[in-house]
Lab assay of single mutants.
Amino acid sequence: GSLMYASIFGNVSAIIQRLYSGTARYHTQMLRVREFIRFHQIPNPLRQRLEEYFQHAWSYTNGIDMNAVLKGFPECLQADICLHLNRSLLQHCKPFRGATKGCLRALAMKFKTTHAPPGDTLVHAGDLLTALYFISRGSIEILRGDVVVAILGKNDIFGEPLNLYARPGKSNGDVRALTYCDLHKIHRDDLLEVLDMYPEFSDHFWSSLEITFNLRDTNMIPGSPGSTELEGGFSRQRKRKLSFRRRTDKDTEQPGEVSALGPGRAGAGPSSRGRPGGPWGESPSSGPSSPESSEDEGPGRSSSPLRLVPFSSPRPPGEPPGGEPLMEDCEKSSDTCNPLSGAFSGVSNIFSFWGDSRGRQYQELPRCPAPTPSLLNIPLSSPGRRPRGDVESRLDALQRQLNRLETRLSADMATVLQLLQRQMTLVPPAYSAVTTPGPGPTSTSPLLPVSPLPTLTLDSLSQVSQFMACEELPPGAPELPQEGPTRRLSLPGQLGALTSQPLHRHGSDPGS
């Protein structure tokens, strides 16, 4: 009898404990919600809404976190579960008819179910419309201010047509639940991603989709105040780019002037030289400038040598048109050559190039014969006009050509200096018209024969001689050997007369 009593008592207590286990969990969670309300000092109306929603959600799901349970299964099984949970929507909604099984599984994985109690606001006026909503159960109302403009029910759709707008718009009203509602919502990016994977279904979906109420604000059109608020930074940046392009296009129409201050000032006329910023005076940081632009901040801005204009002085008759350009485009679109090309026009420029290279940067340069637009006047290309890779490749080509020119210049200078040193070592320090008596009659020769300089066969020296023939050397430049009979510069000019005159010897006659 005691054994029977113990078994009955144990079973009854276990049954009672299981009955009250759900209630215990409910009270535990309710205590957490109330502690949250007390800690954050939530006001009474919002506090009442929180408690009511918790009670309804507990009775609806029995305190089970559906998302946590669903995430515990593998992905393939999750797709089947989501397809079952959203079967009513996918079967009865017209846009989803005719979709393949794979497309429906992908869509079912992207849908999220939302449960809303009465009085809950789903979308506020001015919120971004980031999702498309399908009503599965219940009814909602749409308000503009305090005026109800629409009441939607089961199988209705609200949001915005995503295929017509590249960016999400703003809501033009509040969406509030009238009863307990079940909503299926899919985010904008998720829907577009699935439709991109199934393009054959995309056309059918957009053609058959009928949005019951379009929440997009109709005033959000390009150029409206609301649109400016939504895309303020983007609009200002776009206007700045367009104004920069218009100014650079105007600059290219004036090829007669070359400016070292950047493309923003290349198009300024002579009357605007004294102004601080020219056409860019209202925004000094709008356009890029070269490193020399920092010198323009000092006094005497109108007389600054940074602004270059072609000189009108005539060229000498024998002067060549100019050196070879550094870039391939210089032959086609440049009416002034790079300062480095002028360094190779003569030997005198070679000796004085490194010492006063900055001073020569603004000297007169030889002109190319074609009066085409200036290379320095070409505006900086924006990322939309020329690819970045093209600019980098041009810079690399320019750097390689500069290296080759520097190597060639160093070799030419070394060769010229070597020839000058050899000339100085071969010439005796001094010569006299009267020579010392020699031991015999073989001493009648006034000077030792001097062998002429070897013929220069280097390509670089031939180019130097060509430049010497075309360029007029300055007075202080050293002379180079030329073709024809060679003669030492330090010898007297009348050596031929010395050989014809008898030598005057000093000596005593033994017979006297």
Rank of each mutant, 00 (worst) to 15 (best):
G126R: 02
L128K: 10
L128G: 04
L128H: 12
L128P: 07
T130P: 04
T130L: 06
T130E: 11
A131W: 05
L132V: 10
L132T: 04
L132N: 03
I135D: 01
I135C: 07
S139L: 06
S139Y: 07
I140H: 01
I140F: 01
G145Y: 06
D146K: 07
V147D: 13
V149D: 03
V149E: 03
I151D: 01
I151H: 05
I151F: 03
I151S: 04
G153Q: 10
G153M: 10
G153D: 06
N155Q: 09
G159M: 01
G159R: 02
E160Q: 03
P161Y: 14
L162R: 03
N163C: 09
L164I: 11
L164E: 14
L164P: 10
A166C: 12
R167G: 13
R167W: 10
P168G: 03
G169M: 03
G169C: 02
K170E: 03
K170Y: 09
N172Y: 10
N172R: 10
G173K: 04
V175D: 02
V175G: 02
A177E: 03
L178F: 05
Y180G: 07
D182I: 05
D182C: 08
D182E: 07
H184G: 06
I186S: 01
I186G: 02
H187T: 12
R188V: 09
R188E: 03
D189E: 12
D190Q: 03
L191H: 01
L191M: 08
L192M: 11
L192C: 06
E193K: 07
V194Q: 01
L195W: 03
D196E: 07
E200G: 06
S202Q: 15
S202I: 10
S202V: 11
D203E: 11
H204A: 13
H204M: 04
H204N: 13
F205A: 01
F205W: 12
W206N: 04
W206C: 07
S207Y: 06
S207M: 15
S207C: 12
S207D: 13
E210C: 10
F213N: 03
N214L: 02
T218Y: 12
N219G: 06
N219K: 07
M220G: 08
P222I: 10
G223M: 11
G223C: 08
P225S: 13
G226V: 10
E229S: 10
L230R: 11
L230C: 10
L230S: 11
E231A: 12
G232P: 09
G233H: 12
R236N: 07
R236M: 11
Q237C: 12
R238W: 13
R238Y: 08
K239C: 10
K239R: 10
S243E: 09
F244D: 10
F244W: 12
R245V: 11
R245P: 14
R247T: 11
D249Q: 06
K250H: 09
P255A: 13
P255M: 11
P255I: 14
V258M: 11
V258K: 09
A260K: 09
A260D: 13
A260S: 08
A260V: 12
A260M: 13
L261A: 12
P263K: 14
G264T: 11
R265H: 10
A266K: 09
A266N: 09
A268R: 09
G269A: 11
G269P: 06
S271V: 13
G281M: 12
G281Y: 05
S285N: 10
S286P: 11
S286D: 15
G287V: 09
G287R: 11
S290D: 11
S290F: 15
S290Y: 04
P291T: 06
E295I: 10
E295A: 11
G298C: 06
G298V: 13
P299D: 08
P299C: 09
P299L: 03
R301M: 12
R301Q: 15
R301G: 11
S302M: 11
S302E: 12
S303Y: 04
S303M: 06
S304D: 15
S304H: 01
P305T: 09
P305H: 09
L308Q: 12
P310D: 12
F311D: 14
F311C: 06
S312Q: 13
S313V: 08
R315C: 15
P317Q: 15
P320H: 15
G322D: 07
G323D: 09
P325I: 14
L326G: 13
L326Q: 13
E328L: 05
E328R: 14
D329K: 08
E331A: 12
K332P: 08
S333H: 12
S334I: 07
S334T: 06
S334Q: 09
T336K: 06
T336G: 10
C337P: 10
L340Y: 08
L340P: 10
S341T: 12
A343M: 07
A343C: 03
A343G: 11
F344T: 13
S345L: 06
G346H: 06
V347T: 13
I350D: 10
I350C: 08
F351K: 04
F353R: 12
G355R: 11
G355P: 09
D356W: 13
D356G: 09
S357Q: 13
S357I: 05
R358E: 08
G359A: 13
Q361G: 08
Q361T: 11
Y362V: 08
Y362S: 12
Q363E: 09
L365W: 12
L365C: 09
R367D: 09
T372L: 10
P373C: 12
P373V: 09
L376I: 08
L376T: 10
L376F: 10
N377A: 10
I378C: 11
I378R: 12
P379H: 04
S381I: 13
S382C: 13
R385Q: 10
R386W: 15
R386M: 12
V391F: 15
E392M: 01
E392W: 15
L395E: 13
L395I: 08
D396M: 09
A397L: 08
A397W: 04
Q401P: 13
L402A: 05
N403G: 08
R404D: 03
L405W: 15
L405Y: 04
L405H: 04
L405D: 03
E406C: 04
E406P: 03
T407S: 11
S410L: 07
A411G: 07
A411I: 08
D412M: 03
D412L: 03
M413K: 01
M413P: 03
M413V: 14
M413W: 05
T415R: 13
V416Q: 07
V416L: 09
L417R: 08
L417Q: 04
Q418H: 14
Q418I: 03
R422M: 05
Q423M: 09
Q423L: 04
Q423A: 05
M424W: 03
M424D: 07
T425Y: 13
L426Y: 12
V427R: 07
V427H: 11
P428S: 15
P429E: 08
P429R: 13
A430Q: 14
Y431H: 08
S432I: 12
T436F: 10
T436I: 11
T436W: 08
G438H: 12
G438R: 09
P439M: 09
P439E: 13
P441G: 08
T442D: 12
S443T: 12
S445K: 06
L448Y: 14
L448C: 02
P449G: 10
V450I: 07
P454E: 10
P454D: 04
T455F: 08
L456P: 01
L456D: 11
L458T: 12
S460K: 13
S460N: 13
S460A: 10
S462Y: 09
Q463E: 15
Q463Y: 13
Q463V: 06
V464S: 07
V464P: 11
S465C: 08
Q466P: 12
Q466S: 12
Q466T: 11
F467T: 07
M468C: 14
A469G: 12
C470E: 05
C470I: 05
C470R: 14
E471F: 06
E471K: 04
E472P: 13
E472V: 12
L473M: 04
L473S: 08
P474R: 07
P475N: 08
P478D: 11
P478W: 08
L480R: 08
P481A: 10
P485L: 15
P492R: 10
G493Q: 14
G493C: 09
L495Y: 06
L495H: 11
G496H: 07
A497V: 12
T499V: 13
P502E: 10
L503Y: 08
L503N: 11
H504K: 10
H504A: 12
R505M: 15
H506P: 10
G507Q: 12
G507L: 11
G507S: 08
S508K: 10
D509F: 05
P510K: 09
